[in-house]
């Protein structure tokens, strides 16, 4: 039996840095976010030792849910070694003492910047996404008072016109990351700057997805088994990034989301998995020496 009283406060701070009043407010707002999937719940978003816009929304959500027996994984663009991931992990470990992992399957909480892990996640896990811009309608309307009204009336007509004009001008929808998606057939969300590749993973998933926007002071959620439909037209369908004919130079995988880098013979393009943990796992399975996470 876990003796909770015996756990020391870490590093002179309260457990998970935030004071209990702040955590409680985030918890109340997160519960409402889960009860109204896709609706952006305003929250106080106080100052943190990391500047706003550097993952403070995700960080506050993580701090409000994390407990001493959690196992934490933090990724930045799919990579456990990215500078943002390293700093957020250090802060959380220093103030909670929780164990960390690079292995997607072993984590109970994963905080992420701009990717959903390639490996399928289970119902015992929570994915916390850092969100720079929570408002999908920002493309078409600058006023937050106005977009709030548009959400309340489910008036997404200007977004549809925006997508249509995109097609007229460029022949296809040019939004790459941050692809606007309809949650539970009611609220349009910005799924954070995850690539299109990751959007289908939100639909009818096993995992709870929590979105935190610290600078913009919004929390929203996609519960498990909830419909998430990227906006598309009957004749112009949503499609994910195309990597056909390409394979990762490290692990050989041809069915993961890959980064394009220059560095091949004669300055040519190379492709490498964005999800470093899965890439390392595949290499280990093939018997190659396991390298530290990093691109």
């Amino acid at each position: 039996m876990l003796n909770l009283k015996a756990i020391e406060r870490k590093g002179g701070y309260n457990f998970a840095f935030l004071d209990e009043n702040t955590k409680r407010e985030i918890r109340r707002k997160t519960l409402k976010a889960v009860a109204i999937p896709g609706y952006q719940v305003p929250f106080a978003s106080p100052e943190l030792p990391i500047a706003r816009g550097w993952g403070t929304g995700g960080l506050q959500v993580t701090m409000s849910i994390i407990g001493p027996d959690d196992t934490l994984k933090v990724i930045d663009q799919g990579c456990d070694g990215g500078v943002n991931a390293v700093n957020i992990r250090k802060l959380l470990v220093k103030t909670t003492g929780v164990g960390t992992t690079f292995d997607t399957a072993a984590a109970s909480i994963i905080q992420t910047r701009h990717r959903i892990p390639e490996e399928p996640m289970s119902g015992r896990q929570i994915l916390v996404l850092q969100v720079p811009i929570p408002e999908p309608l920002r493309f078409v309307e600058a006023s937050m008072a106005k977009t709030r009204e548009m959400h309340s009336e489910m008036d997404y007509s200007r977004m549809w016109v925006f997508l249509y004009e995109n097609i007229v001008k460029w022949g296809e929808i040019t939004i790459g990351a941050r692809y606007p998606s309809l949650v539970n057939k009611r609220y349009l969300i910005d799924p954070s700057p995850i690539p299109r590749w990751d959007v289908p993973k939100l639909h009818m998933a096993e995992t709870l997805y929590l979105f935190g926007a610290g600078r913009e002071k919004r929390i929203y959620a996609v519960p498990p088994h909830t419909s998430v439909e990227p906006l598309e037209f009957e004749d112009i369908r949503f499609r994910v990034e195309d990597f056909s004919g390409k394979a990762c130079v490290r692990c050989g995988s041809d069915h993961t989301y890959m980064n394009e880098i220059y560095g091949g013979p004669g300055g040519g393009k190379l492709y490498v998995c964005s999800d470093s943990s899965r890439c390392d796992k595949l290499r280990a399975q093939r018997g190659e020496a396991k390298t530290h996470a990093g691109k």
């Binding site: 909770l4 457990f15 209990e20 519960l31 889960v34 009860a35 849910i65 407990g67 519960p223 498990p224």
Partner: peptide, 20 residues
């Protein structure tokens, strides 16, 4: 009642129950 750790574990159960 431990305001740090009792609340945390009760909240996680509430979050899980509400999400499912």
């Amino acid at each position: 009642f431990d305001k740090v750790f009792d609340t945390q574990r009760i909240y996680r159960l509430m979050l899980d129950a509400l999400a499912r």
